[in-house]
Amino acid sequence: MSSTAAPAPPAAVAARSTKRPRKLRLNAAYVFLLPYVVLLILFGIIPGVYALVISFAKFVGGRPQFFQAGLANYVTAYSDIRFVPALTNVFRYLLLSIPIGIIGVLFLSLWLHARPGRLSTTFRTIFFVPGAFAGPALVLLSFFMLSPDTSPFGFLLRGMGFETSTEVTLIDHYPVLFTIIGFFAGAGGWVAIFYGALNSISKEVLEAATMDGCNPWQAAYYIKMPLILPYIAYMIILVFAGNVQVFAEPQLFGAKYWSPNQLGYAYAFEIGNFGASAAISLLMVVIGLIGASLIIRFSGFYQTDATAT
C-alpha cells in the first residue's frame, strides 16, 4: 500500500480528500446511481404500479374512474372468447420454439467448434448476420421466403404441396412458421455466445481427452456440454421472455387477436378499455416475473467478490 505505486494526483486534492474518505465514497455511489434510479422509478416501477391501479378502474368515455371497476376488467379480459385461444397459441409457439431453439443452437455451436478455423469463423458470421432482422423487416422478408412464387425455397414449398402463399401462411401453421423465422433471426447471436464459452475450454483438456481415446462426440458431450449448460438456463429465460410477447409476426401475417399481446393492444386502442388491457399486461408481467425469479435462482449472480470485502 505504498503511495509510490501510482502517479500522484494534484497535491491539493490529495490533502483535502484523505480527511474524509469514507463519507465521500458513500455519497459518490448515490451520485453515480441517481440518474439510473430516477429512470428505474419512472419507467420500471411506476408503469407497473399504474397498470395495477388502472386494472381496477372503470373507463367512461376514455376517462378513468379509479377503483370503480372491482374485478370487472379481469373478468372481461380473461373471459373474452379470444383470450384462452390467444394463450394457447402462444403456449404452442413456446413449446415448439424453445426446445428447437436450444437444440439447434447447441448443435450449431458444438458442430462449429468441432473444427475451429477460418472456415468455421466464416460460417459463424453467416449464421450471425440475420440477427440484424427484427420486427416488420423480418416479417416482410419471411413473407417473401414463404411465398412459393417468389421464394428461393419455392421448390421445397411446392414439394410439400403448397402452391400459394395463403396455403403456407394458414393460421394453424403460425407456431411452426414463427419458430422457423425466429430461429433464422435469433440463433446466430446465441451461437456466437455459446461459441465464446466453448473457446474458454483449455486446449490441454481437450488434447488430453483425445489422447485418452475420446472421440469428438464424446468430447462434445462430456467436456463441452457441461460447460455451456449454465448459459442454456439463461437462454431459455430470455427466449421465453421474448417469444411470449410476440406481436409483429401475427399482426403482419394478418391474424389480429392471435397473441395475448395483440388482444391487450386491441382492448386499449380499438375499444378504449385500458382496464382490461392492463389486466392482460399484468398477466404478462406476472409471467415475466416468474422468469425473473427463475434466472435469479439459477445463477445467483448479484454477489461478487468486489462486494464481499
Binding site: 419507467f43 408503469p47 407497473g48 399504474y50 397498470a51 388502472i54 429465460i237 430470455l238 421472455a241 421474448g242 411470449v244 410477447q245 406481436f247 399481446n261 391487450g264 393492444y265 386499449a268 385500458f274 388491457s277 392492463a278 399486461s281 399484468l282 404478462m284 408481467v285 409471467i287 415475466g288 416475473l289 422468469g291 425473473a292 434466472i295
Partner: peptide
Amino acid sequence: ILPGSAMVLPL
C-alpha cells in the same frame, strides 16, 4: 427480464 412489451401499454 420483464417482457418489454408487457410494459408498453402501462408506459
